[in-house]
Amino acid sequence: METVKTVSERSVTVVPAPRKKRKWTVDHWLAAAFLTPSVVLIFIFVYGFIGWTGYVSLSNWNSLVPDLSFAGLKNYIYLFHDFRFQADLRNTLVFTILFIGVVIVLGQLLAILLDQKLRGESIFRNIFFFPMALSFVVTGVVWQWLLNPSTGVNLFLKKFGLDSKWYTDTTILGGFHLGNIEFGVPVAIVAVVIAAVWQMTGFAVAMYLAGLRAIPEEVREAARMDGATELQIYRKIIIPLLRPITVSVIIIMAHISLKIFDLIYAMTGPGANFVTDVPGVYMFETTFRGNYYANGAAIAMIMLLSVAIFIVPYLISSRKGGS
């Protein structure tokens, strides 16, 4: 069978007319020459190092002296029993859900409001979009000041009898015991969510706005002809049509929130009782302060996996959709 197949394949490649075979022109060679170095470098410096990190995460390298002897899943087992890492997983989960949820709702709402053909729309669009231009470090420092319990917005809120402890609050809402930690919603993470939402909502607004503009006016008109109210048009037609945008927003926001480091590091640090700690901060501290290289590598691999859970299905589905 095999031989038959190869013969037939060969005959297929030889037989067709020359125009289909496509000779390599100078353009092709140039393109190849430009791309090869980058492709090679990417394979070494991205995929090669992912492989290296994976290898280190399975080793005993937990001091200044490299020790690459095989340790099996020891580092992973240690992490999943560790109070701090369990807290990190809880915080990342809560942060991701709150952050993406608020960004989607707020982004959609603001985009729909902006889409009402108002005057000065571009001014509002810019106002919402500008925070995107900042680095998370700047956002972190500013919000750290704003939400500082003794100096920030509290000075104002106290006049109304409100006195939130913001990111220094150590309460866990709806907490129950799970593993070593109390599982629930850490109140302190809300402060970080506010800062992240402030920065990223503009991006969601821009995406939704583009989505709204892509919906042809005829659709709305047809719905009006059929007697649908404006509210019904949005609930039954516009918002469902925006679903692909929502998927993109989720993918983009998820990979930001799962890997978040700079915002937390600049704004709160690990927090009392690790209420605002995330895997990225733990990875940095355990690797470069504690010299636990293998533990750090294991955290990196877990972060990669958690992002891959979102990204890989998206890549597969978008390839299917594309071809």
């Binding site: 791309l35 170095p37 390839r319 594309g322």
Partner: peptide, 20 residues
């Protein structure tokens, strides 16, 4: 095709930063 384009542009960006 779409995906290939993505890969190539990614590769280019990385290539330039690295060579920089």
């Amino acid at each position: 095709m779409k995906k290939k384009g993505l890969w190539l542009s990614l590769a280019l960006v990385f290539g330039f930063t690295l060579s920089g």
